[in-house]
Nucleic acid binder design. Sequence first.
DNA 1: GCGCGCACTTGTCTTCTACTTGTATCATGT
DNA 2: ACATGATACAAGTAGAAGACAAGTGCGCGC
Lengths: 243, 243
Amino acid sequence: MRAHRYQQIAEDLRRRVEAGEFAAGRLLPSEAALSGRYKASRVTVRKALEALRADGLVESRQGFGWFVAADPLRQTLGRLGTIEGQLAASGVPSERRILDFAFLRAPARVRAVLGADTVLRVRRVNLADGEPFARVTVWCPEALGSGLSRDQVAASSFYDLLDVRLGGATQTIGAAAASAADAAALEIPEGSPVLRCERITEDADGRPVLLAEHVFPAHRTEFVVDLPHPEASISPSGLRLVE
Amino acid sequence: MRAHRYQQIAEDLRRRVEAGEFAAGRLLPSEAALSGRYKASRVTVRKALEALRADGLVESRQGFGWFVAADPLRQTLGRLGTIEGQLAASGVPSERRILDFAFLRAPARVRAVLGADTVLRVRRVNLADGEPFARVTVWCPEALGSGLSRDQVAASSFYDLLDVRLGGATQTIGAAAASAADAAALEIPEGSPVLRCERITEDADGRPVLLAEHVFPAHRTEFVVDLPHPEASISPSGLRLVE
DNA sequence: GCGCGCACTTGTCTTCTACTTGTATCATGT
DNA sequence: ACATGATACAAGTAGAAGACAAGTGCGCGC
């Protein structure tokens, strides 16, 4: 693959900024220093930096220097970031508490989606800063989950643990009233509004391998999607009526 | 049937591009390099590349190079239908009832987004098969909306009426409990869960031109998004915590 | 404390080279 | 007639190197 030099540099800088190598508000190395480090001229380095500024990732002031933009978080959202990434970027401690780890007969809905009679079901609560913000249930065919232990699931992400090449996913977001179980797990009143997301993940061959349901308290979460091109309608994209 | 050389090359390039050998937005080898690789003249290579451009697969800029045009986000968006489209496709009669058409001082939130003191506010209810399924409020700067009439808004879409080149949009989806106004308009109990979508539409220069709020009853609507590529996390994409 | 200058930074410009696409012309072989 | 090859030139971009202006921060001398 071919790319212009300034594109490579912009990519590398973006990676380092997003990885938090330069804390928010802190100065980046000067153009001259970057020029030396990347063995590229100042013009090239500036092009890369200006590309990052166009994305709102960094800013500059004459005579002062380049610094990480005060609000790099919005940028993460534009790229469809995940909450984990957001939390990590802002330094909020996050935690996952496993409530339940069991192999059982698949409920009808799960069997219909995954096409497996016996499944691994993991239920957990995600916490940010000690407060629960998501109640998660993941189903996975026994064939894929049989090698997993409760400790593994607690420590790592399903995506890392499963030994399959993943394909795409379909995500469905709806609103609902909190069930008793939701209310208990999320410490909110029963019946209060929640966002309910169901995600079906497929492997590279299009076979569904994971079914995940996430329930978020409405007052703490919202779904953001950037549409780079205008649609022909004023209505929200992707919404559909259900029966 | 004998395939011309440039057709063979176009086929091979198409295969490689579609296989993801060159990521979106990245440069292809130069015409000279391809000419050497395929042992064909630059004219022939160009014919092949122009055939791919006709299909919208690649683009070129003089002095810059050929690059893959396929924007993965755009592909995702291509699959996002709107409710209107869904209704039209299924033959359900839909209707828009204007509740309110007025120029007024912008509330703080609207002023902050649109940067205008006086705005046009249009409130309406969308109905499918005679039943309300969305309560919509649209704000638009007076400068843009001053030429509009209530009848125009009732008959056409805002996108058609506004004489601006539209850029992208940001869509935020959250859950909430139905307010009294929501409940009355949508014929649902007050406090029942609703999906609340806010969309900020910008013109080609990035200036916000429209702020739209859509409220849907949760039991009738859900949001679907296809993710062609797996994410590094199991969590729903685009979700964020709000404060 | 105050002003000044020094070192350093970004902003902007020029000049030059190398490379790429855009376009045209002419020759050649099937 | 048409695809292809070879070649040439125009126009645009990337990049290196350098110069200068303008803004910032800091320490020094007063």
